[in-house]
Amino acid sequence: MRGFGVFLGKELREIGRTWRIWVLPGIVLFFAASGPPLAKITPELLSSLVDTQGTGMVIQLPDPTYVDAYLQWTKNLSQIVIFALIIMFAGAISAEKRGGTAILALTKPLSRTAFVVGKLVSHTVLLVVTTVVGAAVTWGLTFVVFGEAPLGPLAGATGAWLISGVFFVALMMLLSATMDSQAGAAGVGLVVYLLLSIATVWEPAVNYSPAGLVNAPTGIAMSESVPLGWPIGATIALAMLFAAAAIVVFRRREL
C-alpha cells in the first residue's frame, strides 16, 4: 500500500477541483431539495390536471405526509442516482490508464493495490458524503414542508441504499480495472442493476442476495419491517470480493 495516503489526497483534491464535484452531488442535492415540495404539491397537481381535461372525473388522494417525501428520496436514489453513479464511476481506473496519468504515477513508488484502493476509498467518500448531505437536506425540508420528519425511517432507508451504493462502487472499480472502455463498463454495470431489479420478483434472491436491498429503502421509509441481515451481509461480502478482484486484475494488467 505504498503511496496510498499521497494518492488518496490527490484523489480527494481532484474531486473538489474538477467536474466530479458537480455531477453526483448536483444530482443528489437537486432531488433532495425538490423531493419534499414535490411530494407536497403532487396531489394538487394531479387534481388540477384532471380538472383541465373537463372529464368531470374526481380523484380523491390522501393528504401527503412526510412518508411521501421520504419515498421520493428513496425512489430517486434507487433509480437516477444509481444510474449516475454507474456511468460516472465506469472510467475511474480506465480513464487514468487511457490518459497516461496512471503511467506517471505507477512508475513511482505507488503500488497498484494502493492505486485501486485509493480510487475505491475516494469514490466511496464522495458517495457517502453526498448521500448524507442529501439526506440531511431531505430531512430538513420535509420538516419545514410537513411539520414532522422522524429521523429513523429516513436514516434507515438511506443507510440501506448506501450499502447498495458501495456495492456498485466496488463493482464499477472492478469493471473499470478490467475494461478499457468506459461505455462498456457502464453498460455491464447497468445490466447488473437490471438483473438485480428483476431478481426482486424471486423471494430467495430478495432474502439472501443484494436484490433484497433494491426495494428495502422504500419499505424502511414506510416504517415497514424489512429483513436485512442476509441481504446486507451478502452485499458487503460481494463488494469486498469485487474490490479484491479489482486489485488482482489491475496488478496483472500491462499499462
Binding site: 481532484e14 474538477t18 487514468e96 496519468t101 496512471a102 503511467i103 506517471l104
Partner: peptide, 9 residues
C-alpha cells in the same frame, strides 16, 4: 513516457 499524461487541473 512518450506521451506523458498529467492531472491537468
Amino acid at each position: 513516457p512518450d506521451v506523458p499524461g498529467y492531472y491537468e487541473w
